[in-house]
């Protein structure tokens, strides 16, 4: 259990976090979401003391982090950065076993653990263990970053916008991998993102942060239904965001019921029309199914045409 109590952080006189209180339960997938500059990353970093609060305390299982042995504390917390941040002078295996090295694991046990995790993130160990980071794609590098964070079986993993720099397809794959991993292991994940859809997709619970204050916290559906104020409402109001979800296409009345003869690709209603358009680009006759409705190329054209009417009505 992570507890923030009255956490305030000032940078050169301006407050990045203002008297913030929050509790994250064991085993939760907790997402901190907010626009850039909201203080969400600062809050995340107070957990492993990359940021030291100006006042207030952060405790993990009742233990004040400011009183813990710094390296000891960090060696038991997984950390995934935005860009993978692999060390270019080390192989994939060396990168992945850094915490294990510092914890004094035996070579054989280290190797076995890394191989096990590599397989879980869909990287073939035989092919990837001895590669250098410069030989990896962004998605592959971030998978290694995740293996590195999970290697020491931490009770807690911190992820700081880990997928924001990836292309949509890789992002999608990694989101699935992380969700699956979280289901398999008993680990608390604190995940920072500015992408509302990502927050929805991943979170058990989430907190919306703006200007160093938590505006609201709770389960995604609850927040969606009961936004605490205008800011949260707008933040969740998908119609006002630039991203168009397949859910919105269905609710606009397009599509027809799925039949057995249809050769479809299934997509989630939280996926975007852009991913759909991407599929159509490859194969214009491709059908997709969302929530039991079948959509084809003409539906996309109708939807986009309607969007134009909407904005001209504004």
């Amino acid at each position: 259990m992570i507890q923030f109590s009255h956490v305030t952080k000032q940078f050169d006189g301006t407050a990045a976090l203002k008297d913030l209180n929050l509790t994250i339960d064991d085993g939760e997938f907790f997402v901190l979401v907010g626009p850039s500059g909201s203080g969400k990353t600062t809050l995340l970093k107070t957990i492993n003391r990359l940021v030291v609060p100006t006042s207030g305390t952060v405790t993990i299982d009742g233990q004040d982090v400011s009183k813990s042995h710094l390296q000891e504390l960090r060696r038991h917390i997984g950390y995934v950065l935005q860009t993978g941040a692999l060390f270019p002078n080390m192989t994939v295996e060396q990168n992945a076993s850094i915490q294990l090295d510092n914890l004094g694991w035996e070579a054989q046990k280290k190797h076995e653990r890394i191989v096990e995790l590599m397989t879980k993130v869909n990287l073939d160990p035989a092919q990837f263990l001895h590669r250098m980071p410069s030989e990896l794609s962004g998605g592959e590098a971030q998978r290694v970053g995740i293996v590195r964070a999970l290697a020491a079986r931490p009770k807690l993993v911190l992820m700081d916008e880990p997928f924001s720099a990836l292309d949509p397809v890789s992002r999608r794959q990694l989101q699935k991998i992380v969700l699956n991993l979280h289901k398999q292991i008993d680990t608390t994940i604190v995940f920072v993102t500015h992408d509302m859809h990502e927050a929805f997709l991943l979170a058990d619970r989430l907190a919306v942060i703006h200007n160093g204050v938590i505006l609201q916290e709770g389960e995604p559906d609850y927040l969606m239904a009961n936004p605490a104020d205008e800011f949260v409402k707008r933040f969740f109001d998908v119609d006002n965001s630039n991203t168009r979800l397949l859910k919105q296409v269905i609710t606009s009345g397009l599509g027809r019921p799925l039949t057995k003869q249809d050769n479809v690709i299934r997509l989630q209603n939280s996926q975007t029309v852009y991913e759909w358009a991407g599929l159509l680009e490859k194969n214009p006759t491709q059908l997709i199914s969302v929530d039991g409705e079948v959509l084809d190329q003409s539906d996309l054209i109708s939807y986009v045409a309607d969007l134009g009417k909407e904005s001209s009505n504004d």
Binding site: L50, R74, R75, H76, L81, A85, F87, I98, N102, L158
Partner: peptide, 13 residues
């Protein structure tokens, strides 16, 4: 600096 932050965050000696 991202690499240094990563090193710090991983708790290396």
């Amino acid at each position: 600096p991202v690499l240094l932050e990563a090193a710090d965050a991983l708790g290396v000696t």
